[in-house]
Design a protein around this nucleic acid. Structure first.
Lengths: 378, 378
DNA sequence: ACGGGGTGCTAAATCGGGTTAGCACTGCTA
DNA sequence: TAGCAGTGCTAACCCGATTTAGCACCCCGT
């Protein structure tokens, strides 16, 4: 603690000018308002010498803006995946000279209300409402007064005019299925959802959309999932159980050997399920990808540690966070009222493929193509 | 967006009193300054009716405080472990009506400078400087004007008067060694550091302290590590290699069988190394804990997913974050100048044991006790 | 009728900047 | 020498609260 901060008045006094002049010079409006070059120079020099930094709180009070955004999420910290979303948001904000308030609700509506109020009381210029897993949510009140963006969440109603950023799960689902097909696989098991388009762990948007994409491509190829396993929760132990079921049913290609022919593969609905599946396959003496190819979603850090590395579609957390901030800043820059006209677009960000070693190419057999399920290879 | 916020002046006008009176009433100083009960009631009612919320920015300008803290870290989001630290800080801050600015430097000093300035410009009441892995760091300038706390980091100099919060790695090291000893193990391999107290991956405070604690206890029991493996980085692949070396050297108890007698165990310096070790043991056909017990540090989410569950000492991230905020708030509440006198204590938080299934009890053999290393079990 | 002492409230300054309106001075023209 | 245009700068108000100093009124005693 020590001496007071240097204020504009200090700079003005030290330069022998009024604070108006100092303000004008330092805000770059000196030339415009005909302040002589000599005075301008003097003010800038003393400002520099004194280490003057404008007090943003004061500016905020006057201008009604704070160059600050609020980031409210349900559970950032709990999920390992979440961090990057904040990181992307942080980076984008910093590039634009904005700071971020972070808040966690843990799913508690009352806490959310309090956080929102606390942020609004601090005059944030905009709010990002983030969710750790993609879901529909209702919008809290009070967001009509301030620009807002939904991150990794979709608004409950359909008439809501609020920009939204989500991963393109449907496209990723399509690509996952396509990938296996392109590698010659025709026997494809699903761990996490299916076989019907509604057989999904309730509440998970990602599951439903991934599944829809997968089924679309399979159907286009005249295929059905060889088997499908809805899981109560997408955790390793459920993946373990599902994989063991698949093995027990003789679903693995040539159990125990690296058989050729129509390949057998698993689409796991997330990496943690895949992790469990790895364990089950390992215990059964089967190897990935020789006996079973696996493709998954999320690109959990885990995916890179597994042996062999897990091929997976990454949730673009960093991009999601960044994009949300950029959209919000656009909304803030737009003239008030314009936001009401602008289409509250849903921005779907691509999920990039992280290709590792869990998918192998198989020779397509003549009869394999177009055959639905149950092509026994052993 | 819509109509202006309700200000104190609005409440005052609607109540037919001056804004002074309104302020007095709403800040609870009404009785003290002899405002009649009738007026007080009226003001409170209109305030309620209008949904008045004081503008904290304005209060901050007047009082010089913002009820806001800055949380600057090197890499919160990168590390999976980090989230909980922020979460703890967030929770503690919220309980005291404070908000948190979060900033990430990614280890870049220039970025750190900018973030600090941006936060100071916004009149934060205090700063937390956090590090993802415990390390020594120099303090940036400008923190003499504002209360600050180091989180999961130690100041470079010794004369520095800044409170510090770190996990008690040394105690955890002792407990880890003690745990294995208590379970009858006498052949103890180290993955990540050792055998000498200086054989540590450079820069890692945790490694050095954990190792010191481990060696202390081993030496007290008249033991030396059976082997030790410094790792360039604490990642699974290094743990894999180290474990394979141990297996190759015949270090596993009765390789291939669940032999009794003097138990064989590994202390892994973190969970990711342990994960790699699991994979190596698995590939070698050895089982945990029957052929090899493992105890580790960090309590990575991974630890709970592994089969069998990994027994590990948790970094108390949540507590660390919470404690840092509490210390900071104490520093803020303390009269200016008092901080200079107060001892800048280093607060070491205990690392709780998460006991799972990777350590088994072995029958202590008579000759095992007190014998150094290399008790061949097979 | 006047001073003294409460009682109940408010004007005005303050925090640190931004912004508007306009003042004082010079030099040139008519 | 008044009038005008330009030039260079500043006084004063504003944002939304807190806080200090003090005003106006009433009651009471003498």
């Amino acid at each position: 603690m020590s001496r007071r901060r240097v204020t504009l008045a200090d700079v003005a006094q030290a330069s022998g000018v009024s604070s108006t002049t100092a303000s004008l010079v330092l805000s770059g409006r000196g030339a415009e308002l005909r302040i002589s070059e000599g005075v301008q120079q003097r003010v800038r020099e003393t400002s520099e010498a004194l280490g003057y930094r404008p007090n943003i709180v004061s500016i905020g009070l006057r201008k009604g803006s704070s160059r600050t955004l609020g980031f409210v999420s349900d559970t950032v910290a709990t999920s390992q995946l979440a961090g990057d979303m904040i990181k992307g948001a942080l980076a984008a904000a910093r590039e634009h000279g904005f700071m971020l308030f972070i808040g966690e609700t843990e799913g508690d509506t009352k806490v959310e209300r309090k956080l929102l109020d606390a942020m609004l009381d601090r005059q944030v210029d905009g709010i990002i409402l983030a969710s750790m897993f993609t879901r529909r949510r209702r919008l809290p009140s009070g967001l009509d007064h301030v620009p807002a963006v939904l991150l990794n969440a979709l608004p409950q109603g359909s008439h809501v005019t609020i920009p939204t950023v989500v991963p393109d799960e449907h496209a990723a689902g399509r690509e996952a299925a396509r990938l296996l097909l392109d590698h010659g696989h025709r026997t494809i098991h699903l761990i996490g959802a299916g076989p019907g388009p509604d057989d999904v762990t309730p509440g998970t948007v990602a599951g439903r959309e991934r599944l829809a994409g997968i089924l679309e491509v399979l159907h286009e190829a005249g295929l059905e999932p060889a088997s499908a396993h809805v899981c109560a929760d997408w955790l390793p132990s459920y993946g373990f159980d599902a994989a063991r079921d698949i093995i027990a049913a003789g679903g693995a290609a040539g159990a125990g050997g690296a058989a050729g022919g129509a390949g057998t593969a698993i689409i796991s609905f997330n990496d943690r399920l895949a992790f469990g599946a790895y364990q089950a396959l390992h215990e059964a003496g089967l190897t990935v990808p020789d006996d079973m190819s696996i493709v998954s979603f999320d690109d959990h850090p885990l995916a890179d540690w597994l042996r062999p590395g897990l091929t997976t579609f990454a949730i673009p957390h960093h991009d999601l966070g960044r994009r949300a901030v950029e959209l919000l800043l656009e909304g803030i820059a737009a003239p008030a009222g314009a936001a009401d006209q602008a289409p509250a677009a849903v921005h779907r960000l691509p999920m990039p493929l992280r290709e590792r070693d869990s998918v192998r190419t198989v020779r397509a057999t003549a009869d394999g193509v177009g055959t639905a399920a149950g092509v026994p290879a052993g």
